[in-house]
Nucleic acid binder design. Structure first.
Lengths: 168, 168
DNA sequence: CTGATAACGAGAGTGAGAATCAATTTCATT
DNA sequence: AATGAAATTGATTCTCACTCTCGTTATCAG
């Protein structure tokens, strides 16, 4: 079989202290959830969760897997899918479906609701909040007799940088 | 008030005059586009386009195919995909990607922009427009240096009917 | 330590949609 | 009408994101 040389995988490049911190919080909350639900803690999940919280937001599973494999080349894609599903269920991550056909995840630790501006050229994603828009949405929903549980507002276009550049 | 006229060619179920009318307009515009682009008119495309414009909005390709097959059981799914792509390119239809993983098409003949309320229980889709929200979106985009080319606003929740019912 | 069982990884299965390709249809030009 | 180049068709295959299956392994309460 495989030699379990499992020393703790040292982080290749020191991540920002902030990110590492949020990864810590997340691991606490996750272990809580795990014991509540009768799940089991595994090395793979730790690696995936750490990687996720130490990476910039809006990762696709592919991108996350790539980063995970740099730390542990033996983790399977299915495990990343499964882990992100768990993170979503316990409220630590939220899934976003933009128009590129992939599910993207962003950390959801104590984050307020927000929407997105998406550059169709460089694929940059900028978050924003606008209380007025939210209010108006509620008004519209009420006018139509709807009780809204969630919403999605995405603005697609060119970011400042990509407007300046000619055609890419 | 719906006019009950018998002036239409015999079709399996007489569609609303309004819909048949828009199907007519659409066919004109399509044939224009077809000759412009050096494409060719075909019986299959006519059937698909007619069916599309005589059906209620927000059809998935599956649903459309089903309706098409009732008129001509020999039309292939690939042709429906291809035809809807053409309709989208020439501005007669617009594609929508809601959270159910299928592309849905709605007629776009001289229609103004609008957004959607979607019932997560009965899957009803209600359209709405709100000029104030649009304006605020522009403001937000400007603040972030974006030039927005299109946007997507979807409100998910329960419609009036489904709120009344217990659980479905 | 041990046994029940959750979790793993590899790979097969799915479903929407795009691509391929031989056979057919369209249509401008004879 | 007949021709033939080019577009179109439908069956099938492929791709891509994701889920499921299954034999094996790891976790953890007792």
């Amino acid at each position: 079989m495989s030699p379990r040389s499992h020393s703790h995988p040292p982080s290749p490049a020191t991540p920002p202290a902030e990110a590492a911190d949020s990864a810590l919080h997340a691991r606490e909350r996750l272990s809580q959830w795990i014991s509540e639900k009768g799940l089991k803690a595994t090395r793979q999940r730790d690696v995936i969760v750490d990687t996720f919280f130490e990476s910039p937001g809006h990762l696709s599973v592919d991108e996350l897997l790539e980063a995970v494999l740099r730390r542990d080349p033996h983790i399977g894609a299915a495990t990343v899918y499964r882990t992100m599903k768990i993170l979503t269920e316990c409220g630590l991550a939220s899934a976003r479906h933009f128009d590129d056909g992939q599910t993207r995840y962003e950390p959801a630790l104590d984050r307020a609701h927000h929407d997105h501006l998406i550059c169709t050229s460089c694929h940059a994603i900028v978050e924003f909040e606008n209380e007025r828009i939210e209010e108006l949405q509620d008004v519209v929903a009420r006018q139509h007799g709807f009780t809204v549980t969630r919403h999605k507002l995405e603005l697609y276009g060119l970011c400042k940088t990509c407007q300046a550049k000619p055609a890419r």
